[in-house]
Simulated assay, not measured.
Amino acid sequence: MKKLFLFLLMAFAAKAQLSSKAEVVLVTVAPGKELHSAFGHTILWVNDPTNGIDRAYSYGTFDFKTENFYLKFLMGTLPYTISVHSMQDEFNYNAQYEKRGMIAQKLELDSLQKNAIFQSLEKNLLPENREYAYKFFYDNCSTRIRDMIEKNAPGKYQWNQNPSLEGKSYRDWMNKYLEPNSWVTLGMNLALGIPSNVKANASQACYLPDNLAAATNLAPKLAANPVSLFDGEIAPETGFDFTGPYVILGLLTLLIGFLSFKQAFPYAADVALFGLIGILAWFVFFLGTATNHEVMAWNPASLMLFPLNFPLVIWFARNPMKWKNYLQVISVLCFVGLVWSGMQFLPLVLAGLPVFIRLVSLSFIKK
């Protein structure tokens, strides 16, 4: 009965026409505290008081109860959907519950464009259309709405005519939102490959909700001035993280360098070092080669950390003279990966230096 009611409701909405009083509003939600909300959110709100239509559409919705959720998330096969709520429900959750700021921009569209957007959104809600393959940089809650507007009002919003959104790569834009958490910043950058370094044009930079709002706001006479629906809590400024990866890895590098210079680095420590780094290396290699996350492909961190060092460490650390050729070749590959990774994101060098120091030390052992 519930499914039948939902079907009839959607069928009615699909046939409904908006009145002349209808508005299509771009709503931008500020970043949240959780990682999945750290980049903000975009909502497209269709409001028609004459016909009693109040529908706030969101893309990028997922369900934690999905079977094998974590495996599908890891593999990049987790189904994402479009969802719809009333704006009051969205306000209650994002503003009242999560204390995230919300800004609204009414889009200046004619009646045909408004109706086309409304019908397209309702069509997307149909069971056969609602699921899609989410891509963080290319197909998310913000890009879907950008493309929806462009499809139904072609050429009206010149997303690319915004110089302030030019010149940064996808990775650069991402890092802007990860600054408060240095461990997450290092981890996500370690997982990303060469595609994330592509310079995004102004339209592509709209994969971030704040950038889509900025591009829309600069479109002359095409959007009303932004109106704050709720002023979120101002995040406290974060100082230098003395328990973060830069301090921990820096101290570890100094310790390994000192013990290696003194030739006092024990076999068990080599196994532990290359074992832990090796597990991480295999994970990075897996993300880049065996999943649907194309932005993690061609990752120079795989050269820097080199997966095969584990479990081979069990043998080459015990008798490095017999493995001298291997160690010298891998040292060169590690150095290439180290420089390449550092060019992508400088702090990544700290993740590879301990391994590089040990490889070079072992390859030059005389006895």
Results as ranks from 00 to 15, higher is better:
Lys324Val: 04
Leu255Phe: 15
Asn225Gln: 15
Lys114Ala: 03
Ile277His: 13
Met102Asp: 07
Phe73Val: 03
Gly288Ile: 11
Gly101Gln: 08
Val25Leu: 05
Leu333Val: 10
Gln344Cys: 01
Thr185Glu: 09
Ser19Ala: 03
Gly232Met: 09
Thr28Tyr: 01
Val184Pro: 04
Glu108Ile: 05
Asp241Pro: 13
Ala104Glu: 09
Pro209Tyr: 12
Ile277Met: 12
Ala214Arg: 15
Leu305Glu: 02
Ala16Thr: 03
Leu338Tyr: 12
Lys99Ala: 12
Thr50Ala: 07
Ile149Trp: 03
Leu346Glu: 08
Glu122Val: 14
Trp340Ser: 02
Asn140Cys: 02
Lys322Gln: 14
Phe345Glu: 12
Arg100Asp: 10
Asn217Arg: 15
Gly101Asn: 03
Phe356Trp: 15
Ala13Asn: 13
Leu125His: 04
Phe356Asp: 00
Pro307Met: 05
Glu67Leu: 15
Gly155Met: 11
Ser203Ala: 15
Tyr93Val: 01
Glu67Ala: 10
Lys99Gln: 12
Asn92Thr: 12
Gln158Asp: 13
Leu252Cys: 11
Val313Lys: 06
Leu208Ile: 09
Ser83Gly: 13
Gly193Asn: 06
Val198Asp: 07
Ala38His: 11
Leu26Glu: 01
Lys106Leu: 10
Ala202Pro: 01
Ala191Asn: 13
Leu273Asp: 05
Phe345Gln: 13
Trp45Ala: 03
Phe240Thr: 07
Pro226Glu: 02
Tyr97Glu: 14
Pro236Glu: 13
Asn181Trp: 12
Leu212Val: 04
Met75Leu: 14
Leu8Val: 04
Pro354Cys: 04
Ala223Ile: 06
Leu252His: 08
Ala351Ser: 05
Tyr267Met: 01
Glu34His: 07
Leu353Tyr: 02
Leu121Pro: 03
Leu186Asn: 00
Phe258Thr: 06
Asn309Glu: 08
Lys366Met: 08
Asn51Asp: 06
Arg100His: 13
Val184Lys: 06
Ala38Val: 10
Leu303Ile: 09
Lys3Gln: 14
